[in-house]
Amino acid sequence: MNTTTLFGNSSAVIPPRPAEDSLTAFFWQGARDGKLLIHRCRQCQSYIHWPRPVCRFCLATDLSPAEVSGRGRLHTYTSATQAFHPYFLERVPYIIATVELEEQPGLMMVSNLVGVEPMAVQPNMLVEVLYREVAPGLTLPLFEPATTRRGGDR
């Protein structure tokens, strides 16, 4: 398939954008501010990601964004070699990662792992967040291998 014909220069194609709503806008605004914010129950202190209006642990409806450390463990990953959106046509292969944040067992988030070659990825490696503006107004929280300098010694 000639992608240039179909889509022009795909580096100019804009990435998929989130439709921020009243439940999710804090997460994306946090990323723009260089913070990783996760919905947290004010009653039992559990984190809930992806955001929900209720805490599944105690059924409280009193949740609010809380900043987390941005450190975690690489739970699983894949090197995506086929693009399903034109923005990624010239970006394959890229690594999709499920990261378990250090604040709570099973607190998973999906992101990309950067700063490491696919062959060098180690299961369970410690990772930490970084922020990358990929389009005007869209900053993604990504992850890279943790460095001792930056305190990834959990």
Binding site: P18, A19, E20, F27, A80, Q82, F84, H85, V110, S111
Partner: peptide, 30 residues
């Protein structure tokens, strides 16, 4: 795949839980 790509190119912002996947190039069952 060409149809999937063409459709994605003109899609509106991604709503719901998928907004936590699509910007990272994730979401395909594969």
């Amino acid at each position: 795949t060409p149809v999937v790509l063409a459709t994605a190119a003109s899609s509106p912002p991604v709503a719901g839980d998928a907004q936590f996947l699509a910007p990272f190039g994730a979401g395909s069952p594969t």
